[in-house]
Simulated assay, not measured.
Amino acid sequence: MNNIGFRILPIEKRLDRQLVEQFRDVVTPHISDNLNRMHAIGSKLRPFHKEGKLIGTALTVKTRPGDNLLVHKAIDMAEPGDVIVVDAGGDTTNAIVGEIMLQLAQKKGITGFVIDGAIRDSKAFIEGDFPVYAAGVTHRGPYKDGPGEINVPISVGGMLVHPGDLILGDEDGIAVVPQDSAAEVLEMVRIQEIKEIEILKSIGNGTVDRSWVDEILKQKGCEFNDLANKV
């Protein structure tokens, strides 16, 4: 029976680990720019760890708000390099993960949590370098009844995440790279990095070209007067 709403599926395909590792030094703004600023998890999910970049393959969980039974199962299923990404409906009434699950995840080689919901035992996360992004903190614990689903498309912070997508998080937030586009995005990011290095150099040596600002304003029909041009 196809028990939609209470089922566990496999990840059909994971990204090559060597390709994932090439994103290690990539920043989320560069990913966002090269995905037309359309593949970012919302800013309400913020980092709770002391430091460290989040990078890995999405193992997705959709759970009833306040219930973490399927998140426990996801930890047991996960492979090293996976990121557990949880759609808990954005509800922060009950915590979805805490220190025990943190320790379990680290032991398994999981690279981080993204929780559209709350965490607890926050001190254990704040003082460590295991990446976790969440919507809030509460001392109230979770239920363990289900239902829920593992490795289905989910919505986290307004972003659609598929199992196997590349997840990258840093100080600016979390970017999602569709699995089939990862190699292409990496190539575009490297080109942008070179361009931005040149821009920063031109700022430093005083040769930066800012004519594009006025060009866009003129294209938009902006009205100029003499005083504005002298500013």
Rank of each mutant, 00 (worst) to 15 (best):
I31K: 06
L160M: 13
V27L: 14
L15R: 06
P178S: 07
G136P: 10
I126D: 14
I96F: 05
V20A: 01
E187V: 07
K218I: 07
S32M: 07
P178L: 08
A228G: 03
M188F: 05
I55Y: 04
Q18W: 10
T63D: 04
V213A: 02
A74I: 02
F48W: 11
G66M: 03
A78T: 08
N36T: 00
K220Q: 15
I41H: 05
A95H: 03
F6G: 10
G117A: 05
P147W: 02
L102T: 00
R7N: 13
M101S: 06
A228D: 03
V71L: 06
T63A: 10
F125Q: 00
T60M: 15
H139E: 15
T63R: 01
E193H: 04
V161W: 05
G157D: 00
A124K: 05
G204V: 01
F130G: 03
E198L: 14
P163C: 01
R140Y: 02
K195P: 05
G90W: 08
Q22F: 04
G148D: 01
D165K: 09
D129C: 10
S43V: 15
S202L: 10
E51Y: 12
N94R: 15
L9R: 15
D170S: 01
V86N: 01
I75Q: 08
V156I: 02
K123G: 08
E12G: 11
R140C: 05
I110L: 00
T111F: 02
L35A: 01
K195I: 05
Q103K: 13
D145M: 15
H39E: 14
D165E: 14
D67M: 04
R190G: 02
A74E: 06
G66L: 12
A134N: 05
D165Q: 14
K201S: 09
V114I: 11
